[in-house]
Design a protein around this nucleic acid. Sequence first.
DNA 1: TTCGTGGCACGAACACTGTTCTAAACGCGA
DNA 2: TCGCGTTTAGAACAGTGTTCGTGCCACGAA
Lengths: 240, 240
Amino acid sequence: MPERAPVTRDQWAARIAALDAPRRATRARKPPITVERIVEAAFGLVAAEGYDALTMRRVATALETGPASLYAHVRDKAELDDLLIGELCAQVTLPEADPVRWREQFLDVCRQLRDQYLRYPGISGAALSTAPHGLDALRLNEGLLAILLAGGVAPRSAAWAIDAAFLYVGAYSLEASLRRHADASTDQRLLDRDEVVARFRMLPADRFPNVVAHADELAAGEGHERFDFTLELLLAGLDR
Amino acid sequence: MPERAPVTRDQWAARIAALDAPRRATRARKPPITVERIVEAAFGLVAAEGYDALTMRRVATALETGPASLYAHVRDKAELDDLLIGELCAQVTLPEADPVRWREQFLDVCRQLRDQYLRYPGISGAALSTAPHGLDALRLNEGLLAILLAGGVAPRSAAWAIDAAFLYVGAYSLEASLRRHADASTDQRLLDRDEVVARFRMLPADRFPNVVAHADELAAGEGHERFDFTLELLLAGLDR
DNA sequence: TTCGTGGCACGAACACTGTTCTAAACGCGA
DNA sequence: TCGCGTTTAGAACAGTGTTCGTGCCACGAA
């Protein structure tokens, strides 16, 4: 994973100042490269082939230019990753915090983020490799804080629970992407359910008694049941 | 992240059969390349420079050979990753499940795994990119299942909580590695605590009221307090 | 209209990656 | 000693991220 050049304090201030600025109109070149077009091309690649296929050269080819052209608009690949993750965070809609329905609101925001990640297989790996300090991630942080504080959760508990939720959503989405991506390819990376259970049952029962006995439960779960289960555990723990 | 060739059913059976087999003695060549030496060289590299520095060429150089030599012993880089993660899992000691102290036992196993990951910065990224179906990971699964079942947790809840814990431990360790690795380098990737708080406070209070008001809590936490907090939430949720 | 300047575009190049191919070397059993 | 199988490892292939240097273009000033 590429290392990231640090964002200076001045650059941070500029980003904040730009929060209200309108998006710059596309310049009159035919058609000029823009950050927006680079991001769009990158998303197209990831949606079609997964995050591992995302390279500066592939993006440049999609834009019918050379790879060096991109560096006039983005610092490096790490910054492109940040832009992608930021854009996905920006797609999540935040509710008005409701002191009665705060748990369901929290779950819904996490589900939206998960679903954004799952549209682009493997992309949450990029999210896990950076600190979620971008403005778009902070917007989600703000929204989730409002929800948990409205539900009466102590501020520190709220902050740490959100941190945990971000990590889990990213990791879960990565795992789910790998499973889903494997299903789509002939060269399977992850085994299907029946094969997993069969292999668990092949284990020596004296060494893996519980795994063998509960092979079905270990492999069980439709859709996002495990996802909901885990976040509900977190929320239940916060309730005390 | 490299894609993985699937392990066939026959290969799986061979791995199980090998569980009881003694480790092969080092062959008499001076000194021959072995899987063990490759793994040891790889760990040395990751400990010193982080997981991003781990390449087949770097490992080969450390062993004073060419990169192609490694392919007689490991299928590809993905298999090397699996071997490393398996070895880290193997270092975790499992207790005798105690119906009274099951929560503390569960936390302790997770802490051990976390600490193994943290010895090799960034390596849990490799763990997150594969399904935890290796025998060493299943050994941990077996031990954690025994603990949770001893504590009276329903089998399916136990299985899914363990899955969630694995994801969280990996993601948390990756984030902690990035922070710790950044501290060690002059080109900081993650900002230190005071800078993070300062940047939170720079945000417009009308758009980020809760983030600005709770900047300290968002950045708070010594050592592994967040880690313990999150797993205790999970365990508290299981108790119901 | 012309000229200078700054920014953009992009091929070439650099240093690296994972992996395969091919040939030589080595160890072991007959 | 010889044949065979395995290991070793350089060379090669196809790719990566990023920088350098040069040409092109737009715009503002004279």
